[in-house]
Amino acid sequence: MTQQLENILEVNNLQTVFATEGGEVRAVDGVSFVVPKGKTIGIVGESGSGKSITSLSILRLLAKNGKVNDGEILFKGKDLLKLTDKQMRDIRGNQISMIFQEPMTSLNPVYTVGQQISETLIIHKKISKQEAMKQSVDMLKLVGIPSPEKRVKQYPHELSGGMRQRVMIAMALACDPEILIADEPTTALDVTIQAQILELIRDLQNRLDMSVIMITHDLGVVAETCDYVAVMYAGQVVEYSDVRTLFKNPKHPYTLGLLNSLPRHDVDQEKLIPIKGMVPSPHDMPVGCRFAPRCPVATQACHTKPPMLESIGNNEQIRCWMYSEEWDGDSEVTLYGEKRTVKG
């Protein structure tokens, strides 16, 4: 436990803004987390939490109207935000790769699977077309696609959704990257196919010793694949901890709320406890804690002063006044149908 892990990626105080018709919107506001080498970190949150924007910020793939305003993204000590476009391109698909939510639309319909995997190899490894095609076949084999010699010549529309996501993974892993960012990689897939893909990612991660950033809204996926988890709410990380602590001893009222509202298929639950209200509009963020309007234990102070992301204990961070010295409110909460005191 005490063994110090080498961090391959460190995100510090990331702030990403978007120019919209209603004015500038801070989609990501002060996000910090680390990715230990060879581990999987989950970024979990609901729609609008900024989890996808965070991942796109890392690879500098934001849409035209978005930009990173502040913060640093240290990849092996180098700040990605300071690189030239050319240097950044050399990292994309080579040292840091990404797969996306929609395998149906994420592949170019007019090129064969082989051409698309080869392209990555040719760009980064400077090898011949023939050699790249040969390696593409190997990659398809690696991701468990049957008869890869045949598949390599097929177009994306000839493959099922699960197969396409395998192709995406083959493409992402072609250059043996150190980090794989998986943005909701199984959300669009059926559950039996999801199981195949998650199994594949886990297996390849072990074999290739890479780090994975798993972006998802599904707490089940988090529990099964991640070592560490950052929970995001309204553009901020509200809780960061190892996965066991997050599920067994969650601290932030939002994390508790998520676990309480999740209908489970593995146990019977009496009643779900939803989080009241809804996510604040990015144009109209609460001045204090962003979760305060929905928080069951919020005090007056929560509505006026924004809490910081503070370390509490070993490798655990939390953004909540409840864990500060001066907290005078309630600290009894319900989890999995039981009352418990979270503070301390």
Binding site: V191, T192, Q194, A195, Q196, L198, E199, D218, L219, G220, V221, V222, A223, E224, T225, V243, R244, F247, K248, L259, L262, R264, H265, D266
Partner: peptide, 19 residues
């Protein structure tokens, strides 16, 4: 189908049937 669903419990012991 039941075994394929990820369980939101990192300690859950699972016998997974992958189709």
């Amino acid at each position: 189908l039941l075994s394929a669903i990820p369980v939101p419990d990192p300690d859950a012991k699972k016998e997974r049937i992958i189709l």
